[in-house]
Amino acid sequence: MRVLQIMAGAERGGAEKFFDRLVSALAQRGLDQHVVCRSFPNRLNHLKNHHVPYTIASFHQLLDFRTRRLIQKRIRLYEPDIVLTWMSRASHLCPAGDFTFVARLGGYYDLKYYKKADYLIGNTPDIQKYFIRQGWPEDKTAYLPNFVDHPCPGQPQDRSVYATPEKAPLLLSMGRFHDDKAFDILIPALAHLPGVYLWLAGEGERERRLRYLAHEYSVNDRVRFIKWQKNVSALYKSADVYVCPSRVEPLGNVVIEAWAHEIPVVAAASDGPKGLIQDQENGLLVPLNNVEALARAIKKVLGSSPLRKKLVEQGLSTYLKDYTEEKACQHYLSFFEQITPKRRCS
């Protein structure tokens, strides 16, 4: 079986990180793959290290005729059984042909860009239900879960590097500094948590605004802005609670990563975390955009050793049951075997 994967995404992001993990994991299991992607050095080195051949494309815009021709040529030369596209631009630029065309979506996107696809993959059950509500045939959809890497070996991040007291309660939150991530809710919540520190890892257009908020709420002495990290295990291992305050979060890979690293999770009840977390069992859920509720939940976890123990144990159990590399790869390979000879009827 030959699978051509077309990734039109950015250098960083949740879908992009999962793409990198999936391609290398499938390569380790012997799947014949070729990748079409942008020329980001880290991604190209990752593909080289896992002996996955690639073709570089620009993906400048939807009417990128050069990229369209390049994809057509690669399909002609590689003769894939399956083409798996990532992002609407890749799906729009991919032609129909003598292969099974699969589009993978990690959110509730307009399906007009995916009309040529034979199948749609959603990475949550609710996204799969969205496809069906939009009129896509149920038997041409699939829910295939993400997985996260096992925690990397090594020690926790030395707190002194980020001027954080060794015994201070420490929160961790990560993501692009964008309104969807609701760090503008988490920072004010810290004002209700005296003595608690926050490591905020990421980059983005809202960083200046978030730094201003930290000053405005007089918590700037307890907030540490940390740049994107390639290896986040050390950060997880240093933290006492992972907080996902997102107001828009279709999945929430960070929740699964926190479970794998055995730290308790507090999350706002956006679509992804709400689908992952059983409240009071493997995490705590709070209403969206609610500073006080978020602070109360964090305080509850920090103040109760039995609750922390329960959330950690149940979170790890959920990860091992549903979100390991082995489980996810089994799902993908089984799905590929099932769909290779099929097409969606028009």
Rank of each mutant, 00 (worst) to 15 (best):
G97L: 08
P165S: 15
L172N: 09
F101L: 03
F101W: 07
E207V: 08
D110L: 11
D126Q: 11
I121R: 02
H178L: 04
P156C: 04
K167L: 14
G97Y: 05
G195F: 06
K115D: 12
L186F: 13
I187T: 12
K140S: 07
R211A: 06
C94V: 08
K181S: 05
N220G: 01
D126S: 13
L171N: 14
Q155F: 03
P165N: 09
L170T: 11
L200N: 11
I226Y: 02
F131M: 00
R211K: 15
D180P: 01
K129T: 09
Y108I: 04
L198M: 06
A117K: 01
P165L: 06
G154S: 07
N123H: 09
L144S: 02
T141S: 06
L111D: 06
A103F: 00
D118L: 00
L235R: 02
L198F: 04
I226T: 01
F183W: 05
A234K: 12
L210Q: 14
T124S: 14
Q128D: 01
Y113Q: 02
Y114D: 07
W136E: 03
Y109W: 12
T124K: 04
R206F: 01
C152V: 10
W136N: 05
A191L: 05
N123K: 11
R159N: 13
G122C: 11
N231A: 06
V102W: 04
V102Y: 04
Q134G: 09
G107R: 03
S218W: 02
R209E: 14
R159E: 05
K116N: 15
S160E: 11
I132Y: 10
Y143Q: 03
D139E: 15
H178E: 05
